[in-house]
Computed example of a mutant assay.
Amino acid sequence: MRIKCWGSRGSVCVSGQQYIKYGGDTTCFEIQADSGEIVIIDAGTGIRRLGKHLVQNKVKTCYLLLTHTHWDHIIGLPFFHPLLYGNTTVHIQDRTFAGLTTKKVIEQVMRMPFFPVGLTAYNADIRFDASLNKRFSIGSLDIEAIPTSHSQNSLGYKFTEKGKTFVFLTDNELGYVHARGKSVEEYIDFSKNADVLFHDTEYTDNEYLNRTGWGHSCLSDVLDLSARASVGQLGLIHINQDRSDDQVDVMVDHGRRFFNDNHLSISCYAVSADFEIFL
């Protein structure tokens, strides 16, 4: 599988010289199966660039999975260029968020006075698919979902293909169990021996002291999870909207020292926009 980041910023998109290295777009990740299917995780502002890329490369079908529907994870959807073309099919995972179906959530966001164009105005064949939940397959990808410790109905995902595993856990607070969230031990089990783990690392340890219960993890908790799960690589995601490139580098250096001091061969990095990896 091929994994590419189109946005890993948290809460709100940002711009400025201090954000060039890691980028300012909010959450959007592309996974391409060896069998060719394109799976998208979240429709943050990064999905705008991804959509242009898909149109340029004449991709006619894609699948969209949502971790949850907070603004920073869906706000880019109206600007997803494939939706403009009638020869495109977009399969969107259908489930409920606070009692609303995925379609109802999107319809509420894409209407006046919030947005001038409704969902039905787009030309693409938009299909809401309830089968894209719990355990399912898309092409050669086997996918499993797990509730995250964040908000009602938020999910993380595990992708497995040809013996390789990628785990994606954004907006997941390891230091506090939210309603329907899981224990740290369950997230360790879910991530066990993953080749690559991308995990929400919104806060430094000092910041987290005043933000417990806000739905995001601090660096030490993520490092501990990665070590106990024996993952191969750890990518830090949901980068705080105020975190400069230099400050992100400090967190990465801390992670690398932690793994080195504990004689662990886990690779640690922050996931930047346009980062790409093949498994």
Score class of each variant (00 low, 15 high):
D125C: 12
N206C: 10
D274P: 02
H81D: 15
D125Q: 13
S191C: 07
V39C: 02
H178G: 10
G215W: 04
R111Q: 15
N123K: 12
K182V: 11
V196I: 14
D72R: 08
L223Q: 02
Q56K: 14
A227Y: 14
T148H: 00
F79H: 11
I92Y: 00
R180S: 15
I20F: 09
G139I: 04
E276Y: 03
T170V: 07
S8H: 05
L64F: 05
S35Y: 08
Y63G: 03
I41V: 12
I146C: 05
H53Y: 15
G175I: 01
D261P: 01
D274T: 05
T27E: 14
V248H: 00
T204G: 10
G255F: 00
L65F: 09
G118I: 09
S131H: 09
G156I: 04
G163M: 02
F198H: 08
I237F: 02
F198I: 10
G232M: 01
E173P: 04
F190H: 03
G44W: 03
T89M: 05
A273K: 14
P82I: 01
R256F: 07
L155V: 12
Q17E: 15
N87V: 06
C268R: 00
T69P: 08
D253Y: 08
E30A: 07
K60N: 11
Y63M: 09
C5P: 00
R48V: 14
D249Q: 05
K103H: 10
V250L: 12
L225A: 04
N57C: 08
S265M: 11
A179Y: 13
H178T: 13
W71D: 15
I277C: 11
W214H: 13
I92R: 00
C28H: 01
A121Y: 10
E30T: 06
W214T: 15
I237L: 07
S15Q: 11
G36M: 06
I20R: 11
S154M: 00
L66Q: 10
K182E: 12
T96S: 09
G99A: 01
S230G: 12
L65S: 07
S267C: 13
G175D: 04
H199K: 11
S154Q: 00
A33P: 03
D224E: 14
F166C: 08
H150Q: 07
L169R: 02
G175S: 08
C5I: 08
F97M: 06
